[in-house]
Design a protein around this nucleic acid. Structure first.
Lengths: 218, 218
DNA sequence: CGACCTATTGAATTCGTTCAATGATAGTGG
DNA sequence: CCACTATCATTGAACGAATTCAATAGGTCG
């Protein structure tokens, strides 16, 4: 639809404070959005894989409150917001897609923000990356991570050392083989079992709790 | 726009697994959305104060993956999704409002999902509730909480005991006075100072880190 | 090779949890 | 009106998961 841009590893797509005028769709590569809080701690807000939107959270404040940084050589497609929202008025299908995209975004954020152990978080992260790789047409057991341990840790709210340790633990129990950014999933089902509690979908239908009598408190 | 419903404390608006066909706007009272994971742990996903939307995250899966429960006597307004999205095609202003609402939702979720200490989380929670009270026309220092310590704890990913203890700590340092669900903020600025790092807005503009040379890694 | 960065591993510490007991409040029925 | 019960909240002590601090190993690039 619009022209696209190429980014080198470490290059910024936008920065905190930049005014918002465009959404971006990732065509190739992988980016992270992150922010540094007043205390100087960095928080990785999200990773953006091929096909995902960047900038949704800036629509409301009309200003970017995060940095978007390419983790590897990446290309993104510009989607000027005015044009997109204008077009959405004419093409109902587009509007539906946008709303679904936003909803999906909220949906996925819900799981990461829950109260889960370090093992659960890391397992869910790997399952998630695996699923994205499959969507992008790659193998789902041979993962070439685009992000450092530090980025993973910041995203999962853990220390880098914890990420290393748990990967080692997973390796010891035969779940995977990890060599730096090259991860081989040896037992995807095992990982999935650990991560299951974080999968929003698992909350629907199958794992229903028994209907309770009338009003339920708490 | 549509008819509204009244809910008694503890009553469900919808349950996990219910099919999605309507958004809801809170007219009075307060609700929580929560889910129970496969391990039986409850996670409070969000509180919904007067004026807020409920159900955004169900647009994509077309199914509710959380329970919505009234914390106090509440009333909500039904917004049938089909009608709303249809109407949005005709009224550009409405579409913009919906997108802004969604974006705002994402925006607010970002802060709670970050890596912060128990004190920071609780302070931010109180500041947030205070702001909502003001928006709803109430006093912003005399807070009558709608939710239990248990709900607060589940929302903030803490134990109830930790919530109690930190409230006691805040009280001891003169920040507030807490008596069960009646909280009086004695030093809102002090609380705000603790919570500042969680305020997404504080990341914009003011607390800019110095521009770095070209490519910035991590 | 040596410098630098990323990742791993070990030991000590800490923040928050868990377990356990007590206190406060509201609702119920005699 | 006062037990009696149930629920919610607070407080103390022991525990534990993850962090922090510190040192080492493995890659990469000049």
């Amino acid at each position: 639809m619009q022209h696209s841009a190429t980014l080198a590893p470490g290059e910024h797509l936008f920065r905190v404070g930049d005014s918002f005028h465009s959404l971006y769709a990732v065509r190739t590569g992988c980016l992270k959005t992150c922010a540094v809080d007043p205390n100087g701690r960095e928080h990785v807000i999200n990773f953006h894989f091929v096909g995902e939107l960047i900038g949704i959270d800036a629509i409301f404040p009309e200003q970017h409150f995060s940095d978007a940084i390419a983790l590897v050589e990446s290309s993104v497609c510009h989607l000027p917001y005015r044009a997109v929202s204008q077009l959405a008025l004419e093409i109902p299908e587009l509007q539906i897609q946008i709303l679904r995209g936003l909803s999906r975004h909220v949906f996925s954020m819900t799981s990461i923000s829950g109260d889960f152990s370090a093992e659960e978080r890391l397992a869910a992260f790997l399952v998630m990356v695996s699923a994205r790789h499959r969507l992008a047409g790659g193998g789902s057991t041979e993962l070439q991570l685009a992000m450092s341990r530090q980025d993973i840790a910041n995203y999962l709210r853990l220390a880098t050392e914890t990420v290393s340790r748990i990967l080692a633990r997973f390796q010891k129990s035969g779940l995977l083989r990890a060599n730096r950014r090259q991860i081989t999933l040896l037992n995807p089902d095992g990982l999935y079992a650990i991560a299951e509690c974080m999968n929003p979908y698992s909350k629907c239908g199958i794992n229903r709790r028994r209907p309770e009598s009338g009003t339920t408190r708490r």
